[in-house]
Design a protein around this nucleic acid. Structure first.
Length: 825
RNA sequence: GGGCAGGUGGUGGAAUGGUAUACACGAGAGACUUAAAAUCUCUUGGUCGUAAGACCUUGUGGGUUCGAGUCCCACCCUGCCCACCA
């Protein structure tokens, strides 16, 4: 997905080698230990040759288990990365053994900045770097024993993939969901380029530390806001963590209120405001416009003109970050007045940057008595502060009780807001914090935006396809038009200059504009910006269903069979990014009739992060990175997989412990030792199967492992080996396959067998230990047959010398079958 | 300022309102070994006690309950996300 941590090997290698040697774990030393290096490679080859993990039969019930898209960074993975991948792999294997036809694919979110920055610095083209990185990631994933269907591997930088990213852009553009407008963007004056918000650190460019400015540029947008309500409503049906849903709701930020108009005193213009509190109209003592508000220039009086211009220019220079970080509010009077529609009072109009241009109407009716921010501003500039009180009763009569901000509650607002809004000629409305999605990037390593600009009034456009709904804008002599589908993909050229110049590097390509005029008419030229990589990753899960299709982004039948994704695993940091973009994309394509579902991911779980052994976030600079290649080499992939599940609850973040991992390796050796000599004569360990199955269904992988440990600690004989191996297989696939085929002598893969069944009744022990309490305090226990009656338990307690007094002393008792008996005095 | 998680031994953590501290790590003692590693066995929340046992203990303070780590109220602390959103 996004550019995750970049892992540097060099400082770590020495450290880790020392650590491993210190722990002294050497599998070759004792007979009881298995040689992980040998068996892991052997079975990885076997699974690949036999195609064990390929999804291709359509007869069985489908189950789609997906990891979030990976960005193949230069240094490969650290041990935190495989945690989510291991969990999804365990689920894929588990559901496969439950008889499902499982789709478990992997692919690469290959476009993005690090490869391009590397090209700027070193000169190696991004395509080359990316190819190398992918090969390394793939090698690592295979060495972990992941059961991906590599026939379905996809790569966003492959023209066969980005053709469809471009096609989706075209569909959105043709239907009015992609549009172009002037917008402020983060601009680094030194690098001469636009930066994404993530690249702006504390108001500075992350690469050169220059102060980032706001620059107005023509940019492409997707109409995110058209789906704001549907994106909120759709959450209800999803099995996602509640906190994730809540974060998305807050990000979309719906609020109900009213749109009101304040006429300029002595002018014809009106200032529109959005307010959630029209009931505080009588407390309005001034009006504030955002510095960017279009009426500022128009209404400012000649006396105030200079001061206002200076203030506005200053505000523009400040970054959004500086503006919000400002401790004190600032502003300037415009000299103009508006009329309050409720009481016809004249109030002054100010300009202040605490009002945001891009929320509501970029203007606020200030009520300093009932709003903290207005209050602070009013105090600083000596503006009137008027509480809404009893004397306004005439106005509010009939609209419910009088409003005092602290007493205002939801029930009253339901009655009061519509009535008052109507009385002053406003209307009820809903506002969202969500903005449209700015997808243009002045970058090379991304999917080119498939748009052609032609001279205005050009006779030759558009050719074919649906009529373009492209807007023309302010006096420009060129208009953007949609491309023909058959002209896709627009291939990313390689004759470019990577050095940043302020324009997209594609502008420096000669090849890129070849043939455009011949095809689209004289003067035609291509858009040179590329798309945000989040566009590429907003639909990739669809492509896995039918990755080799050359006619469509994915065939209808395949989509119908596999989608939506049944189980999605990935980090919570993507909540307000990727997860929202993907939901938006599915909703647009659904609305346009390309999909028959409108949510991409039915069930979602987040993995917690693995911190370094020092409890800090793993990072190159802290030097606490643990390299999974080292772990696999010394302890084996099975050990790593199982330890990462054993560490704690899947969603929780926690520190890595190499010593803790050694405990898991000891357990696997113990298993290996105990299964020796097992034969075909087998019995189901019902209690074990029941507990493991139950925890698998709840994704409580940590307790699955501890349950297996407890079982092995007690296990006698070998009658349990067959079923135990099946339970072990998703976690430690190599060892399980080794036991399955080479100890038990099975001929097919353990993954082609079925998850063991159990009998609930036989899963229960014949006898139970009942806690004997006195006033809730434990005094002892009695062992007795399961489901023993109250009378039998009482008798057993009475027979116990130490407990017998409880029966005699107590007036009454509470009995819970198979659990407790509590005596009350 | 708003939202969401969470606070349990030396450590990671376990526990449908019913025996708190499972499992694992670490530590201590012992066995094997010339020795070490590995492996195996035992001990391991605290206080008092020779012992039997008693009392205390899940961030703090209240409450509900026969019984609360778990439910309710208030507070403290930590982490994450958003943040001048009218």
């Amino acid at each position: 997905m996004s550019e995750m941590c970049i892992v540097d090997k060099s400082p770590f290698v020495n450290r880790s080698k020392r650590a491993f040697r210190f722990l002294g774990y050497d599998s070759a030393m004792a007979k009881a230990k298995f040689n992980h290096q040998k068996i892991e490679k052997k079975w990885q080859k076997f699974w690949e040759a036999e195609g064990i993990f390929k999804a291709n039969e359509k007869a069985r019930e489908p189950f789609y288990v997906l990891d979030m898209f990976a960005y193949p960074s230069g240094e490969g993975m650290h041990v935190g990365h495989p945690r989510g991948y291991t969990a999804s792999d365990i689920l894929a294997k588990y559901y496969m053994m439950q008889g499902k036809n499982v789709l478990h694919p992997f692919g690469w979110d290959a476009f993005g900045l690090p490869a391009e920055n590397y090209a700027v610095k070193v000169g190696v083209p991004p395509a080359q770097t990316t190819k190398k990185n992918i090969a390394n990631f793939k090698r690592q994933l295979k060495s972990f024993g992941m059961g991906y269907d590599w026939d379905r591997e996809i790569n966003t930088s492959d023209p066969n993939y980005y053709k469809w990213t471009q096609w989706i852009f075209k569909v959105l553009f043709d239907n009015g969901y992609a549009y172009q407008k002037e917008a402020y963007a983060n601009w680094c004056p030194k690098c001469q380029t636009v930066l994404a918000n993530e690249q702006v650190v504390a108001g500075q460019c992350e690469r050169c530390d220059s102060a980032v400015e706001q620059k107005k540029m023509k940019q492409w947008f997707f109409k995110f806001t058209a789906f704001a309500q549907e994106l909120i409503d759709g959450l209800a049906q999803l099995d996602w963590p509640e906190s994730t849903k809540e974060m998305q709701k807050n990000w979309i930020g719906r609020s109900e209120g009213a749109e009101l108009e304040f006429a300029i005193d002595g002018g014809r213009d009106k200032i529109k405001v959005f307010t959630t509190r029209p009931d505080t109209l009588f407390g309005v003592t001034y009006m504030v416009l955002a510095p960017e508000h279009e009426l500022v220039e128009k209404i400012v009086t000649s006396e105030q003109k200079k001061a206002v211009e200076r203030y506005v220019a200053n505000a523009r220079k400040k970054s959004a970050l500086d503006r919000t970080a400002a401790k004190e509010k600032t502003g300037v009077f415009t000299g103009a007045y508006v009329v309050n529609p409720a009481n016809h009072e004249r109030v002054p109009v100010w300009v202040a940057d605490y009002v945001l241009a891009d929320y509501g109407f970029g203007a606020v009716m200030a009520v300093p008595a009932h709003d903290e921010r207005d209050n602070e501003f009013a105090k600083k500039y000596d503006l009137r502060i008027v509480r809404v009180i009893e004397s306004d009763e005439d106005f509010y009569a009939g609209y419910g009780k009088l409003i005092n901000s602290s007493e205002f509650d939801g029930q009253e607002s339901e009655k009061v807001i519509p009535a008052i809004t109507k009385k002053v000629g406003g209307k009820l409305t809903v506002q969202y914090k969500l903005h449209d999605w700015l997808i243009s990037r002045q970058r090379y390593w991304g999917a080119p935006i498939p748009i052609i600009y032609v001279p205005k009034g050009s006779p030759s456009v558009p050719r074919g396809g649906k009529k373009s709904v492209a807007p023309t804008y302010g006096g420009d002599s060129f208009v953007p038009v949609s491309m023909d589908e058959k002209d896709l993909p627009v291939i990313l050229p390689n004759d470019v200059d990577f050095k940043p110049t302020g324009e997209s590097p594609l502008a420096s390509s000669k090849k890129f504009q070849d043939g455009v005029e011949a095809r689209y008419g004289k003067g035609a030229r291509r858009e040179v910006d590329t798309m945000d990589t989040f566009v590429c990753s907003s639909w990739y899960f669809l492509r896995y269903c039918d990755p080799h299709n050359t006619k469509e982004f994915a065939g209808k039948d395949s989509l119908k069979y596999w989608m939506p994704v049944d189980f999605y695993v990935g980090g919570a940091e993507h909540t307000n990014g990727h997860l929202l973009y993907a939901r938006f994309m599915v909703k647009v394509l659904h609305k346009l009739g390309y999909l028959d579902f409108d949510e991409p991911f039915l069930k979602l779980r987040h993995q917690g992060m693995i911190q370094g052994e020092d409890g800090e976030k793993m990072s190159k600079s802290r030097g606490n990175v643990v390299n999974p290649d080292e772990v696999v080499e010394h302890y084996g992939a099975d050990t790593m997989r199982m330890y990462e599940m054993f560490m704690g609850p899947f969603a929780m973040s926690m520190p890595w412990s190499t010593q803790g991992m050694v405990g898991v390796r000891r357990f696997l050796d113990k298993v290996w030792g105990k299964v020796q000599g097992a034969d075909k004569k087998q019995e189901t360990p019902h209690a074990l199967v029941a507990k493991v199955t139950e925890d698998m269904e709840g994704q409580k992988f940590n307790t699955v492992v501890s349950t297996m440990m407890e079982f092995i600690n007690e296990a006698q004989g070998t009658s349990w080996v067959r079923d135990f191996t099946l339970l072990l297989a998703p976690f430690a696939p190599h060892l399980a396959e080794e036991i399955w085929q080479n100890v038990l002598g099975e001929k097919a893969s353990v993954f082609e067998d079925r998850w063991p069944r159990f009998d609930t009744k036989r899963a229960q022990a014949a006898s139970v230990v009942i806690a004997v309490q006195e006033m809730g305090k434990l005094r002892g226990t009695v062992e007795i047959a399961r489901d023993a009656s109250e009378r039998d338990v009482l008798a057993a307690v009475e027979q116990n010398d130490k407990l017998t007094r409880l029966v005699q002393n107590s007036k009454k008792h509470v009995f819970v079958p198979n659990k407790i008996i509590n005596f009350i005095n």
